[in-house]
Design a protein around this nucleic acid. Structure first.
Length: 444
RNA sequence: GGAGAGGUGCCAGAGCGGCCGAAUGGGAUGCCCUGCUAAGGCAUUGACCCUCCGGGGUCCGUGGGUUCAAAUCCCACCCUCUCCGCCA
């Protein structure tokens, strides 16, 4: 199947029919520069329409004339045909100029539209930064006071237990790569299996490619704006996927989905690759931030009507993964000023790490509206009550979220489950995956 | 990586530079006929954009070119299949 060029971003028609509403909605993201871009886009869009109208008129003339020429030639009326041909050629010249202009303007418009973020949901709380993100669930399992033996950073504990060897990971690949060994590696793998098993009741397991095309990363919104955050393999025009969200969302790119088949719910365990440009030197110790990490991602394609319930369900699933590990956590909702470019509404699950004394983001669950579906050209075909297809299509909605991001949960377990003697008790729900290891103690 | 074949509508599959948005068959849907599930007849059956709602434009893998006119000719690229090579 040919790669699908992304053609749509936010609904271009809204720029014409309801520009003020678009600007009112986007102003809630509290970044004034966006509004200027919207205005610019609206101007270009209006110009584009004018050009297209004129170009189409000329094309209509050329089409008509060409048909006449064909008829005349068949009848052997060569002179008349040639006169018409000359006329058509003139039109052709003007058409070419207009077509070039159209291409130029539409490219410019596309470039701007690709950078304009999604409209926030009406339900998304207003706010300027992460300080304004309200806590909507919890804190749960949080102790009033943490004993000394839990106030140890996970990298110190892991080092003592011999389950983390970042020094050698650095030797192999460079700074900010991690390597778990022994029971640490087993624990990391166990978390993946646990995350998958927990959601297998509703989500189909996929094993997706780790290297993805430019079109794929553009569809989910990583490109063109955040190219510096991803690893590029230029020789082959591929990118190391920064999240399984990208390949999962492009599975149905360019396809039209029946509403009767929705929702489609998928999940994938994958490695994720991030350059962390701009974060060099931050969280360099332990497992909090790395260029490569594993996670289990949930993803859903839905109708607009199904999306809100699916969002709730996916947040509940992310929450449950942490709750059953008996880790302290809370769920926050992301406010308009802090929400990612593609997102319509977002919830984060955060786990408390007593050693680092910090809330760590371990999951982010988002409803994307039709933002990604437009970019990826994922259409929705509706059917009436009798099951007959309704003429025309619209765009599907997409949702995604991490069911379980390994490194930070791993770190939270090492810190929260540390015993006085320095060993770590593995949460019970991981028993089926730990090959009999219930406690991680020093091997020496 | 090398050699060959091919990419057309929901599927299969034809297509001479103009009468091709596209034959034909299948499928699906509707109606008719037939006293039952068989057979038959007729009709409908893609999407996108613009619209002064009359209509106009675009799409035959993708991008470019030639031409008054391109599914059809030329160039590049992508993808699929078969064989060989190489491998996990």
């Amino acid at each position: 199947m040919a790669p699908v060029a992304s053609r749509f971003v936010i609904d271009q028609r809204l720029l014409r029919t309801d520009l003020d509403a678009v600007k009112a909605s986007l102003s809630r993201r509290q970044r004034p520069a966006i509004l200027d871009e919207v205005d610019h886009a609206a101007r270009l869009d209006a110009r584009l329409l004018d050009i297209a109208r004129e170009r189409d008129e000329i094309r209509a003339k050329v089409n008509t004339i060409s048909k006449e020429v064909g008829g005349l030639r068949r009848d052997g009326k060569v002179d008349e045909a040639e006169a018409l041909q000359a006329q058509s050629k003139e039109h052709g010249g003007r058409e070419k100029v207009l077509a070039a202009e159209h291409d130029e303007v539409s490219q410019a418009l596309r470039d701007i539209l690709l950078g304009i973020p999604n409209l926030p949901s009406d339900a998304t709380p207003d706010g300027a930064s992460d300080d304004d993100n309200p806590v909507v669930i919890g804190p749960i399992n949080l102790l009033d006071d943490y004993p000394e033996h839990q106030r140890v950073p996970h990298w110190e504990t892991a080092d003592a237990l011999g389950i983390l060897d970042n020094e050698r990971a650095t030797k192999i690949s460079g700074a900010m790569f991690t390597m778990q060994r022994g029971a640490g590696a087993t624990l990391a793998r166990a978390l993946c299996q646990y995350g998958l098993d927990l959601n297998a009741d509703a989500h189909e397991e996929m094993r997706v490619p780790s290297l993805v095309s430019t079109a794929t990363l553009t569809a989910t919104g990583q490109l063109p704006k955040f190219a510096d955050d991803a690893y590029a393999i230029e020789r082959d025009d591929l990118w190391a996927s920064p999240t399984a969200e990208a390949p999962l969302t492009s599975i149905y790119a360019g396809e039209t989905l029946d509403d009767t088949a929705l929702p489609i719910r998928l999940m994938a365990h994958s490695s994720s690759y991030r350059r962390e440009a701009g974060s060099a030197g931050r969280d360099t110790r332990g497992m909090l931030r790395a260029h490569e990490f594993d996670k289990v991602e949930l993803m859903a394609y839905s109708t607009p009507e199904q999306a809100p319930d699916l969002l709730d369900d996916m947040v509940a699933r992310s929450e449950r993964a942490i709750a059953e590990l008996e880790l302290p956590y809370r769920v926050i909702e992301i406010c308009t000023g802090d929400m990612g470019q593609s997102h319509h509404r977002t919830f984060d699950v955060e786990v408390y790490a007593p050693g680092a004394d910090a809330w760590l983001e371990v999951s982010s669950v988002s409803w994307l509206g039709d933002y990604q579906a437009r970019r990826a050209a994922i259409r929705l075909k509706r059917h009436d009550a009798d099951g007959k297809p309704i003429k025309g299509t619209e765009f599907a909605h997409t949702l995604n979220g991490s069911a379980l991001a390994v490194p930070r949960v791993w770190a939270a377990i090492i810190e929260n489950c540390r015993n006085e003697d320095g060993s770590v008790t593995v949460p019970e729900v991981l028993d089926p995956y730990m090959r009999g290891i219930t406690t991680i103690a020093p091997t020496a």
